[in-house]
Nucleic acid binder design. Structure first.
Length: 137
DNA sequence: GCCAACGTTGGC
DNA sequence: GCCAACGTTGGC
């Protein structure tokens, strides 16, 4: 099982919308590195749902329920997407500030490569994040 | 609102 | 194939 973090601007697609939809295609990614990360996702993998720009915090957990398939909204045909399902909100949202303040999380692409919108998280980092978020999955 | 980082496009 | 110009993302 692998762990991931996916970003969304709440003004575009928020966690509350994710909860309301329960399941949603993660479409609109137009970056090869992010797309390659989605290609590596397997059903049953967990991901943090992060609010970029406004909020700047991890607000919930989702699970991958459909593996990489073509994103029909991409007219070039180059990019795909996965489907994710809402699992639960974080007990305590984890702010970017708190993540940056934790030396154990300094290698997260969220910190190192702020523009990447889909990124892997290592198992030990995942454990730390869930602990910080007072969340059990 | 600004700007750093970085990806993409297109001329050569 | 290089690189300048430009666009986008996202933190601050």
């Amino acid at each position: 099982m692998a762990f991931w973090l996916i970003k969304s601007e709440p003004s575009g697609y928020s966690w509350s919308q994710m909860v309301q939809d329960h399941q949603a295609p993660w479409d609109g990614v137009r970056n090869y590195q992010a797309a390659n990360n989605m290609k590596a996702m397997k059903c049953g993998d967990y991901a943090c749902f992060y609010h970029s720009n406004q909020g700047r915090e991890i607000v919930g957990i989702v699970i991958v329920v459909k593996e990489y398939y073509p994103d029909l909204s991409d007219s070039s045909g180059r990019f795909g997407m996965v489907d994710v399902q809402a699992v639960k909100p974080m007990g305590i949202p984890i702010s970017l500030k708190a993540i940056k303040a934790n030396p154990a999380l300094a290698d997260l692409p969220l910190v190192r490569q702020s523009r990447l919108s889909v990124m892997p998280i290592r198992a030990h980092e995942w454990r730390i994040l869930l602990q910080m978020g007072n969340t059990v999955v």
